[in-house]
Design a protein around this nucleic acid. Structure first.
Length: 639
RNA sequence: GCUGGUGUAGCUCAGUGGUAGAGCACCUCCUUGGUAAGGAGGAGGUCGAGGGUUCAAUCCCCUCCACCAGCUCCA
């Protein structure tokens, strides 16, 4: 074994260093600037502490403070810092896990007495004190037996069973003064590196996410190298809050909620403009793609749900009722109704693929704690469709669905690059043959690969009747929401005895594909509101233009303009209030109306309107017809 | 459902063991003003619901409901 290691740096040069060299040593050797900025090293993809000897040669790079991955290291260290403070203030607390997350960190605790939000400032203050103490993060390694003994000695009971699940033989610990934690690292050299930290919330959780497991409390926070970075982050969070669809929905009078119907959206006229505009847009695409549209009942007999499998697999989420001594359920999905439609008449292979769309409203009894505005509700309308086809047609149909997503999402303002695609595979609770699950999962993955979409696998997260592709978009505070979905289902057609006569004259069972593009109208519109911060493109804007007379004497002229625009299809309003024009502009801007049409003496004399855009751009005075040209061009461009 | 929090006017929020207040919005009047707030006055609340403690509860206690942040789950 050579006593020199070969480190291949990002620029391709090879640096020979003696065994025992640390990342810090390498950084120093390269230059003082780098030494100052260095946080950790990455050797063949694995991150090493600044002071940890590199065990072998390989591809090597140094993480600097400005690199995104450095924040992860820092925040993981901040999680330890949090644990130190909590153990100081609440002796006897048992520790769970404490990882870094996308924009911060958390640590799960089992304290003798539950934490309250009011405890956070105290904990945070203690964290700052400890940070100032410059406690080191000192790494040591031992074998599993020693690790268990060590955990037992310090009283970390929860982590004890976890030792055996670690694949490596060597277990690492990090010591910071009296505090020690089993942890694979990496960490910053000492606590003083954590320049700015803020605790954000305390919430409930369970040991390792198991609802039946030990209840714990999660303290969440975020950390940065500098206070300026933290301040900027806090400001971003506050700005994101301004995009909250619940707030904007109220401000723009799109929808409301009422205690009488928890988990249900009440749509107002302006919200319905968004809804109907989206539906009409999707309908246009469906017509081009050979879909028919159906509408099936909300309330269907229990018998149907027993046949479909929902009775056995989905009952907990369903609403039931008894009428005339017969039991019914409110539909949680549209598929069974659609199956009845398919089965109405004998089908020939010549009719396949049969594409049936349904803007179908469903009810699902979701747990009270999961409801969230219009994103997660108990009744929602899916832009659903069920495609009955033979197995050979499946690939082409899936391709067409993915293509539909790629057409619709950019049109409503999403960059496909920001849409996360997952393939959810067979869950523990499922029905149907394993061989069919194999085929179905393969068909979905093949479809994505053929369409060039990156995806990740969400193992075990499929529906009970089949695997699915999920298209996730992100809300204003970084939560992602599943919208579109494509699912393959071999089971339900079989259960409903659906069949078609093939070219061979024999009966065959069709494959059923379920799909939603927008997902649910409720969730989609909520995400859309946040995505655009309420500043919808013209074609979607509930109110597209408002006419603002400068004085009440101009109201009659303004009414004439409104009539002319309305006749041309513009969603236009008149502001006939006695406010001054500045106030009218302010109001229209707050309501995020794309066009403000100011009319005064000058405009009235020339049959004109003075066009101001939502952005504040003054387009100047122009004839009403000229404005309509502007309007139509932008409408067509969907901008 | 679980953990923690919140619930006072349409909205944002003060407040007190002796049945409530501000700003904005609303209504009326004055003002007729040229690109993000003109002025004055008025109206508006079973203080989430039910029970308890008390001479007296919006405030203290209990139960429930809804909402918020997470957990889990989902479109």
């Amino acid at each position: 074994m050579s006593s020199l290691l070969d480190l291949v740096l990002p620029d391709g040069t090879v640096r020979k260093v003696p065994v025992g060299t640390t990342t810090g040593d390498v950084a120093k050797a390269i230059g003082p600037g780098l030494a100052k900025a260095a946080v950790a090293g990455v050797l063949d993809g694995e991150v090493y502490d600044l002071g940890r000897p590199l065990p072998h040669g390989g591809k090597f790079r140094i993480l600097r403070r400005q690199d995104a991955e450095s924040l992860e290291v820092l925040r993981h260290s901040a999680a330890h810092l949090l644990a130190m403070a909590v153990l100081d203030l609440f002796p006897g607390t048992d520790l769970g896990f404490g990882p870094a997350t996308e924009d911060g960190f958390y640590y799960d605790f089992k304290p003798p007495q539950p934490f309250q939000e009011a405890d956070l400032p105290r904990i945070e203050a203690r964290m700052r004190e400890i940070a100032a103490e410059k406690r080191p993060y000192a790494r040591t390694e031992c074998d599993k037996g020693a690790a268990k003994a060590r955990l037992k000695r310090i009283g970390y009971d929860l982590k004890l069973p976890h030792v055996d699940e670690i694949p490596e033989d060597a277990i690492s610990f990090y010591d910071s003064g009296a505090f020690t934690d089993m942890c694979e690292g990496p960490h910053v050299p000492d606590t003083s590196w954590i320049g700015a930290v803020k605790l954000l919330s305390v919430s409930g959780t369970h040991w390792r996410g198991d609802v039946n497991g030990v209840p714990m409390q999660r303290v969440r926070g975020t950390a940065f190298f500098t206070q300026e970075d933290l301040d900027a982050h806090v400001k971003r969070l506050e700005e994101a809050k301004q995009r909250d669809h619940r707030r904007i929905g109220r401000e723009m009078d799109l929808f409301s909620w009422h205690e009488e119907a928890p988990g249900a959206v009440f749509w107002h006229p302006k919200g319905m403009v968004l809804w109907n505009t989206l539906v009409e847009f999707v309908r246009g695409e469906l017509a081009r793609r050979g879909y028919g549209e159906v509408s099936t009942p909300m309330v269907l007999s229990d018998e149907l749900w027993k046949k479909s499998g929902h009775w056995d697999h989905y009952k907990d989420n369903m609403y039931f009722m008894e009428v005339d001594e017969r039991s019914y359920a409110v539909k949680p999905m549209n598929c069974p109704g659609c199956c009845l439609v398919f089965g109405t008449t004998p089908k020939s292979y010549k009719e396949l693929p049969l594409r049936l769309a349904e803007f179908g409203r469903v009810y699902r009894h979701e747990l009270s704690g999961v409801l969230h505005g219009a994103m997660r509700v108990r009744t929602f309308t899916q832009d659903d469709a069920h495609i009955f086809c033979d197995p050979d047609q499946m690939g082409a149909e899936i391709a067409d669905m993915i293509d539909l997503v790629k057409v619709v999402y950019p049109a409503i303002g999403y960059d496909m690059a920001g849409v996360k695609v997952k393939v959810a595979t067979r869950p523990a609770q499922r029905m149907g043959l394993e061989s069919n699950w194999d085929k179905a999962e393969k068909a979905l993955i093949d479809g994505l690969v053929a369409q060039g979409l990156d995806h990740e696998i969400a193992a075990g997260e499929g529906a009970f009747y089949g695997p699915k592709i999920e298209f996730h978009v992100t809300d204003c505070i970084g939560r992602t929401w599943q919208c579109g979905t494509i699912q393959v289902d071999f089971s339900m057609p079989e259960r409903f005895g659906l069949e078609y006569t093939g070219r061979d004259g024999n009966k065959h069972v069709p494959v059923m594909l379920h799909r939603a593009i927008l997902g649910s109208m409720e969730r989609q519109i909520a995400v859309l509101v946040e995505h655009h911060a309420g500043k919808f493109p013209l074609w979607l804007a509930p109110v597209q233009a408002r006419v603002l007379p400068i004085t009440e004497a101009l109201n009659d002229y303004a009414r004439g303009v409104v009539a002319k625009l309305a006749a041309a299809g513009v969603r236009v309003e008149l502001d006939a209030s006695s406010d001054k024009v500045g106030a009218k502009i302010r109001q229209a801007t707050l309501e995020r109306i794309p066009y403000m049409l100011v009319v005064g003496q000058r405009e009235a004399a020339g049959g004109q309107v003075a066009v101001r855009e939502r952005s504040g751009d003054d387009k100047g005075a122009m004839a009403v017809e000229a404005f309509l040209d502007l309007y139509r061009a932008r409408l067509a461009a969907r901008t």
